[in-house]
């Protein structure tokens, strides 16, 4: 591998990693606070993509402007899902919760399939199409923007959880449900907010990606397993860990892709996954929000 290839792959890997990060942040928040491994996270991201897509196609709204729109829409949907379905199984065994979120994913994806048809759709935003050239190296604009927004979301969320009252309430519920209740924190409502927040973050990831890739109802599949890897790598429930984990996975994937032939780079991610699960299930940064 030449030096050029190495560095360009590093750049691309970091940028892609920013996207994995933000997907993972939503997932890790939900797991950290509620103990739910949300299989439907990819499907929620997909919905965010479609919101942005339709906003652009029907009303000409710039994808970054419609970002708050998709975030709010999915926040509401997320809260509803928690209230309507997940609330009832909070105490069920792990695998049952996994199965329920799996069922939710199937419903969301296939409803989207029926409503939107399976065709791949893409948007072309003129001011995003050029790439930034830095000497021999090339940086994709929308990916760069996604990276920075992803980082901002991570920092914002971290600050929110550490410093704000609501954030502390959320963390309190995660750590000690009874104690939190004693102090007057309504854990049910916290859960609505948390899941809604996780869904909103997934939507943000989706909106950021719409200018970059073509979307289709099953796009969530491509990302969900990788997102699990990032979450476990960063430590379930650790927001900053998810951010860093995303970058690590992005870079590993890119470097493996440059080094190996075939699609063996997919293997690298899964092998990392299994190794982490076995030898350091708490992730590199340990758990806890």
């Amino acid at each position: 591998m030449s030096l050029w290839l190495f560095i360009q792959s590093l750049i691309d890997g970091l940028l892609m990693g920013g996207i994995y990060s933000i997907m993972a942040i939503g997932l890790t928040l939900i797991f950290g606070v509620m103990g739910i491994i949300n299989f439907a996270q990819g499907a929620l991201m997909m919905l965010g993509m479609y919101v942005t897509y339709w906003a652009f196609t029907l009303a000409g709204i710039d994808p970054y402007l419609s970002l708050p729109l998709s975030a709010i829409a999915l926040f509401i949907l997320g809260a509803l899902i928690q209230k309507g379905v997940l609330e009832r199984v909070m105490d069920a065994p792990d695998h049952n919760i996994l199965l329920i979120t799996f069922g939710i994913m199937m419903i969301i994806e296939n409803t989207a399939l029926v409503l939107f048809s399976p065709d791949f759709r893409s948007i072309t935003v003129p001011w995003l199409s050029e790439t930034i050239k830095m000497g021999d190296y090339v940086v994709s604009k929308p990916k760069l923007i996604a990276f920075f927004i992803s980082m901002s979301v991570a920092l914002l969320l971290y600050w929110f959880l550490q410093k704000s009252y609501l954030g502390k309430a959320i963390r309190g519920t995660a750590n000690n449900k009874i104690g939190a209740a004693l102090v007057g924190i309504k854990s049910k409502r916290i859960n609505y907010i948390t899941f809604g927040l996780g869904a909103a973050i997934a939507a943000i990831a989706g909106s950021l990606m719409t200018p970059i890739i073509s979307i289709s109802p099953s796009i969530g599949h491509t990302f969900i397993l990788k997102t699990f890897v990032v979450v476990v790598l960063g430590g379930l429930g650790n927001v900053l860990g998810a951010f860093v984990g995303g970058l690590i996975i992005g870079v590993s994937e890119a470097l493996a892709g440059a080094a190996f032939s075939g699609t063996l780079n997919e293997l690298v991610i899964y092998v990392i996954f299994v190794l982490i699960l076995i030898f350091r299930p708490k992730g590199i940064f340990g758990g806890g929000s």
């Binding site: 030449s2 050029w4 290839l5 360009q8 792959s9 691309d12 892609m16 994709s140 990606m209 970059i212 890739i213 289709s216 099953s218 796009i219 599949h221 491509t222 990302f223 994937e253 890119a254 892709g257 440059a258 032939s261 075939g262 699609t263 780079n265 997919e266």
Partner: peptide, 22 residues
Amino acid sequence: LDTLPHPFDTADLSSDVNKIKA
């Protein structure tokens, strides 16, 4: 010179394109 497979539903081809460029 090289053969570069990818999954048909891939979201990203930057790795393959970088190899082409190289």
